[in-house]
Design a binder for these strands. Structure first.
Lengths: 186, 186, 186, 186
DNA sequence: GATGAATGAGTTTTCATTCAT
DNA sequence: TATGAATGAAAACTCATTCAT
């Protein structure tokens, strides 16, 4: 078994279950089934561990979502695809969502560069630019566009994880991405 | 001089500046200009203090936003008003936003009732119900509607606070609430 | 109402109910129905308060027990009387017993002179001397005599307060003082 | 080097030297030669530590005293033996005595079950029952018998530790146990 | 590589005492 | 006299990190 992976998974689970505030190295070690000292063989310390995990998730997310992007297809198709892939990513591993949210809203928690918090939005930016160029997306400020795409996704996943809606139900994702598209398309 | 209020304000400032993770009683006391022991005259402990602050902000928010609601006016006007008031609330005291975000995304951080996390959405729910009844709001699932309203607001404020957009610019709020209205109206 | 007395009674009750360990000035004030600061009008501090209470109880005890002593009566009668009065003293105000016990066994708790711990034994010493002189009490070392008198009294009161025996039952005290007399008499 | 034992011994010494009231974790750690945090590796907290020590001493006491009990021997011999062993136990480690006394007279100090305070009396109970059955011990209520045995022992040890008598002097223990025997025997 | 006991600085919390009213 | 809010030093306890094994 890969201890490094076990440690990262352990952090993910614990942050989701109890929050950053209650996270500590002993719990991480126990959950991962390793000794406390072992963590320091793979990470410089708590901060390094958290940042490594964040980077990992962001990379995974971008890979997953961007791989569905096809320059040959129309913007709308790419948009639908992107929304669906993003949702799928979080539904497949809901702990990722909670972790990213907490990491993002803990200012300076781990000396993180503020701008990197928007790294996750890369796929959205790509799509927005293309859509505006082709004239299929409304010509409103980028910030508002971003808000109309990223915001609803965020909330809908939260609602899903809180069991206020069920995105796995047939047609649910479709309904959602169409609603968002209507909000931003010409 | 109200020491209780000073302590609460102090928490708000510190959570915003350094995050929950770096919050500690000594800093709170110093920032509030009181002795460490004084905090315990007004609050049972750290947990109680945080929860009290959360409750206070939620109440303030709801009062501010709901007071602009006028049953005699059309849903659209109320909606615009509500959005503007909510934005104003956070722009006037940005620390409130950061605090609420961090509190909300720290699961079980302070044993908070999960459902209460949606208390802040009361004004939105009120408006949604009325708009659907009158047929001016699209007949899509509540969860999606909620996502299309709450999500963008959340993101736009975040963008504003991160200086990626400026909601104080003339016409900015108007542009935003109109875009959201277009997303949800028939 | 005499606040000073109320404070002393409050200490007595609290020490009995929760022990020295959990005693604190706020509780004392609350129980006595006065403000915390008021205690310092009557006592220099916690230590002074405790010591004053101890002295008061010892005096009361000696007055009660010695007043029953009659030089004209035989030693045995005085002994019976003394035992009964001592028991009565503690049964009438059981908190006194618990307080004295805890005070006595907390070495240096309040810088008390070690020898004073035996002040309570004055009545016993008086009786022992007289009895030995008259030849009605066994000629064994004083320490052993003391042990045979003070020890059983102590234990029997403890057993009574713990509901393991009932000294209020008719004839109970008589049975007890006769048993002790048999242990020490010639 | 057993740190857990060192910590327990340290508490014993400190309680004897300064009393429960002045006991604190820093002192315990220093006296034991460990870091303050180390105590928490072995005990949940102060309360747990104190209770563990009490349990340990009670067990040790009972083992020491009961191991001298021989069903084949007459009650009187067993009684003498028991008294001597009990005295020896406390004289060998006087801190045990002081600790037990303070623990016992601090009501609810550490939420201890009241009845357990009488666990130490097990050896005495055993002997009493046997003696009464054989008719060598006076037929008086158990509580009084207990008072006549336990009480004097308690007091004599206290007197010894206060240097008012010397139980190590040749014949001293013998004189004492014979006096107690006379008090309870037919 | 792996362990987990040990550390001690840092944190939360308590509480005797003071003092402005 | 009497109050009780406020203090701050000292107490209990936590936990990231180290290091001998």
């Amino acid at each position: 078994m890969d201890k490094k992976q076990a440690i990262l998974k352990s952090v993910l689970k614990l942050v989701n279950r109890e929050g950053f505030y209650h996270l500590n190295m002993k719990k991480i070690a126990q959950e991962a089934g390793v000794a406390a000292g072992t963590i320091y063989l793979y990470f410089k310390g708590k901060e390094d561990l958290i940042n490594a995990l964040y980077g990992m998730i962001v990379n995974e997310f971008n890979q997953n979502v961007l791989e569905g992007y096809d320059d040959g297809k129309p913007v709308k198709a790419n948009f639908f695809n992107m929304i669906d892939l993003a949702i799928d990513f979080y539904l497949a591993e809901p702990d990722n969502f909670s972790f990213i949210e907490q990491y993002t809203y803990a200012p300076f928690l781990f000396k993180e560069n503020q701008d990197e918090n928007f790294t996750l939005l890369l796929p959205i930016y790509k799509m927005m630019r293309e859509g505006k160029k082709q004239g299929v997306i409304r010509n409103i400020p980028d910030a508002i566009l971003l808000a109309l795409i990223h915001g609803p996704m965020n909330t809908i996943i939260k609602l899903h994880l809180a069991h206020k809606t069920d995105l796995n139900k047939k047609g649910a994702k479709q309904k959602f991405h169409e609603a968002v598209w209507q909000a931003i398309s010409v």
